[in-house]
């Protein structure tokens, strides 16, 4: 057989194979056993809630042929969960939901993992942060409060409560300190709910709770939101507390505090999984996003509904890591 034919035949075969691989890629690979959905945080927290909602949606709408099983691995600020997925090389039956501890835990503790050890799957949403004070305090705007922070004597700085140590809440606190040259006493608690209640009980002066963690107390009139750490106002205009909606909260930038911080609620898979396998889960998540239950969750928590996959997602994560490293370095949070 002349060589040319060989080449053509070869090209045709390869071409067919490529088409077969790419076009119906999502339909090709399917999980063959229950999929472990790792949550690197405790039960009841934000990441856990989101994971369990997804699990419920998948179950209810039959979006996967196999079931999705949520497993909490919260040890050492989530390191346990990340290490478990990192260690499950090429195992397509494990996905993990992340929060900011994807960056902060390895930086603050030197536990050996990095997002590059995992396979990025998709960004589901971004969680917002809001500066809250007790409604009985006289501070109506972020400017007024921050002026009070500045004026506080060095012996008793204003107290900021947050979740965990050297994690997102303390990082935002450090950013405010760095931006304005002020000083807070940061008091770490275990969960967002605890933090909100400490503020209601006036044991601390302010918090940077996620919307969903403090919304109940806002509606009951015991907390007051001052500003949101995002580039633009929140796009939710339903009245939440009295005449206020999420959209009525000014951005911190408007208030003269040029800080933005959004927390990743994204998915990763084990290292070494194939493109096909990633595509399958991306497809599932796209279907999850279309359900009413998901939309309700988003509106409830005033989430930023950015969805990203592939290279865009990879780039976002890389940028976020750089940002975390810079802020944490400046604040002295990096492990020696």
């Amino acid at each position: 057989m002349p060589n040319i034919y060989k080449t053509v035949a070869y090209a045709l075969t390869v071409g067919a194979a490529v088409i077969a691989l790419t076009a119906p890629a999502a339909a090709q690979w399917k999980p063959t056993k229950p999929v472990e959905f790792v949550v690197p945080a405790g039960t009841g927290g934000g990441a856990d809630q989101m994971a369990r909602t997804i699990q419920g949606i998948v179950e209810k709408h039959k979006l996967m042929s196999e079931s999705l099983v949520v497993v909490n691995k919260s040890g050492a600020a989530g390191a346990e969960g990340f290490l478990a997925v990192k260690g499950a090389n090429r195992d397509p039956h494990k996905i993990i939901i992340t929060l900011s501890n994807l960056f902060t835990t390895p930086l603050a503790t030197n536990v050996p993992f990095n997002w590059k050890d995992l396979t990025p799957l998709a960004m589901l949403a971004l969680d917002e942060f809001i500066l809250w004070v007790n409604a009985e305090t006289p501070y109506k705007t972020a400017q007024e409060y921050l002026a009070a922070v500045k004026a506080a004597p060095a012996t008793s700085p204003m107290k900021m409560a947050g979740t965990g140590s050297k994690q997102e809440d303390q990082i935002i606190t450090a950013q405010i300190e760095q931006a304005l040259g002020v000083k807070f006493t940061y008091v770490p608690f275990r969960g967002g709910g605890d933090v909100a209640v400490q503020l209601v009980g006036k044991h601390v002066d302010s918090t940077v709770n996620n919307p969903i963690e403090a919304v109940a107390q806002w509606r009951a009139g015991s907390l007051r939101p001052l500003c949101v750490f995002d580039s633009k106002r929140l796009p939710y205009n339903d009245k939440i507390a009295g005449t206020m909606s999420w959209g009525d909260i000014p951005t911190c930038r408007e208030q003269g505090l040029a800080i933005e911080y959004l927390m990743l609620r994204g998915l990763f898979m084990a290292p070494g999984v194939t493109q096909e396998q990633v595509a399958y889960y991306v497809g599932v998540m796209q279907k999850v996003r279309e359900t009413q239950e998901w939309k309700d969750l988003m509106a409830n928590g005033a989430f930023n509904q950015t969805f990203m996959t592939g290279d865009a997602y990879r780039k976002w994560v890389a940028d976020a890591e750089t940002m975390h490293r810079a802020v944490m370095d400046k604040a002295g949070f990096l492990a020696k």
Partner: peptide
């Protein structure tokens, strides 16, 4: 009444409330 869980189980139930579209807290 406050949306703070008094036990780990309560914490999970709290998550449930939110998923069912209820808001735990003083107004519940």
């Amino acid at each position: 009444t406050l949306g703070i869980p008094g036990s780990p189980t309560a914490a999970v139930l709290l998550g449930g409330l939110i998923i069912w579209g209820l808001q735990p807290g003083p107004l519940l």
